[in-house]
Nucleic acid binder design. Sequence first.
DNA 1: AAGTGATGTCACCAGATGGTGACATGTCGG
DNA 2: CCGACATGTCACCATCTGGTGACATCACTT
Lengths: 187, 187
Amino acid sequence: MTTTEPVEPRVAGSSKSALLTAARELFGQRGFEGTTVRDIGELAGVDHALIARYYGSKADLYVAALVAEAQGDQPGPAYEGLADMAQSLIARMDARGVGPVLQAIIRSETSAPIRQAAQAHLARRLVEPTKADMVDRGIDEADLRAELAVSALLGIALGRALGWFDHLRAMPQEQLVALTVELLGEG
Amino acid sequence: MTTTEPVEPRVAGSSKSALLTAARELFGQRGFEGTTVRDIGELAGVDHALIARYYGSKADLYVAALVAEAQGDQPGPAYEGLADMAQSLIARMDARGVGPVLQAIIRSETSAPIRQAAQAHLARRLVEPTKADMVDRGIDEADLRAELAVSALLGIALGRALGWFDHLRAMPQEQLVALTVELLGEG
DNA sequence: AAGTGATGTCACCAGATGGTGACATGTCGG
DNA sequence: CCGACATGTCACCATCTGGTGACATCACTT
């Protein structure tokens, strides 16, 4: 008797969404170039050829992952001050890693449209609220200072997620948030 | 008559150093995976096969580029406070781009030994002086705060070099340094 | 039950990539 | 001059990668 593989029932869209989930994870961990379509297919338990069928190309799948990531943010439309933003960002990266959005702005090989989409996302989600908050508090040159503060925050979050320094990586989340808020100005 | 290529005189070590120079530039701009040995060879005006001969492999050439970059810092053994550090770092990245060291810590695909070497370099060159400065000024938990401040500074520098935000990229160097020092605490 | 469209599997391709080795050519000491 | 070694050139290889298309198999409507 031949050992027959158990036949997976075919559910509409399940492979497509499995691919998207796997793509978000792998692109978020390894970036675009560092991830192969075969890796994604394997993690999703699906043949890599389906990526072309469902998403057109690897690049299109990355865009889809980017959009999915951005939409996941929608519920909480804005952060309440720097502390909240730092808390959310760090908690999220502790849980899910760097993510496709930050990978896109970190890597120079990312194609221009993808990088621009990611940059626009960051500008809207992080810089805008920060700037608005600064304007409210009557701070001068809020444009520049907001971008600077967000960049600094991203540096801290990236440094932790990528393990740049020992203490930074090992620090408990609450302490990191507290020190970050203290460093970047009390929100 | 056949058009003969002008024959390049063969100078000992010239190709080897040309490869290293090209490698520092390209690795620093595009990272390890984003750079091919053929790119390096072309920029150096040299056959890519010589990389294997002189450096063993592409990875070994990256290490050599890392070492060369680190040694280039030696002259000025340490920075005088945060302002000096920020000034030097930003000026350097404005002139030469991200560089192999930061590329190594940004990319997850970088092999462990390379990343560790780059991290050690940063710890010694940036974190240590910052920490010492903080200790001198009687600041508590200098370990954590120094790593945090350096990460924030790297975020700002990376954000500028990689063009994350419009104002950040366009800002004159002096103003950026001034605002950075103001944000991260006066050195 | 049959047929049709969606879904999945598989072999394959073309290009790029890092690396290797044979061979050619220049350089320098004797 | 000439032989030995350094340096350079070239063709080639194995592997990986994204992508394509033919074909098989399942689900669902009629």
